[in-house]
């Protein structure tokens, strides 16, 4: 029984470490803010959850297990909120020239697909101003 739990937690922790490192590499490789958010969410959601599950298996039934579960819930519930707030703030900042938000190396990405989104992002705030 102990062997099974050990093997399982080895698997979870190795997988979690892998996703954590991959997400961090993505944070460096991706070309702009939004794509970097995807990489960060790989490490923050999947990596962290797998590591925590691995630790839970090692903790056994105790108060530590309850705390780890709480930590897992916090991360899974607050992670999307922070990411969404970041994405929304980045989108609104595009119209303000002070915080102008351009991809670092836009030529590397296939810009043909990103173009309609940019047009939409510009059209939306104009509508918003007219309403208010």
């Amino acid at each position: 029984m102990e062997l099974i739990i050990n093997v399982l937690s080895w698997g979870f922790i190795l997988a979690g470490s892998f996703f954590y490192v991959v997400g961090a590499i993505g944070l460096l490789r991706m070309p702009d803010v939004f794509t970097r958010m995807h990489a960060a969410s790989t490490s923050d959601t999947t990596g962290a959850a797998l590591l925590l599950i691995g630790m839970m298996l090692q903790a056994g039934v105790s108060l530590v297990l309850a705390k780890l579960m709480m930590l897992l819930f916090f991360i899974l519930f607050t992670g999307p909120v922070a990411t969404h707030a970041l994405a929304r703030a980045a989108r609104y900042a595009e119209v303000e020239p002070v915080l102008a938000n351009d991809g670092a190396k836009p030529k590397k990405v296939s810009t043909t697909k990103a173009k309609p989104s940019k047009a939409k992002a510009k059209a939306k705030p104009a509508k918003r101003k007219a309403k208010s």
């Binding site: 470490s17 954590y20 490192v21 997400g23 961090a24 590499i25 944070l27 460096l28 803010v33 970097r36 958010m37 960060a40 490490s43 923050d44 990596g47 590591l51 922070a82 990411t83 970041l86 703030a89 980045a90 900042a93 915080l99 938000n101 351009d102 670092a104």
Partner: peptide
């Protein structure tokens, strides 16, 4: 985790926008 930390710190130092830095800080 420490490797991920280092990558995030590099991203926070490089920027280029403030949102990259906030994202790195969150990570």
């Amino acid at each position: 985790i420490i490797v991920a930390h280092i990558c995030a710190v590099i991203r926070a130092l490089k920027g280029p926008t403030v949102f990259d830095r906030v994202l790195a800080a969150n990570t």
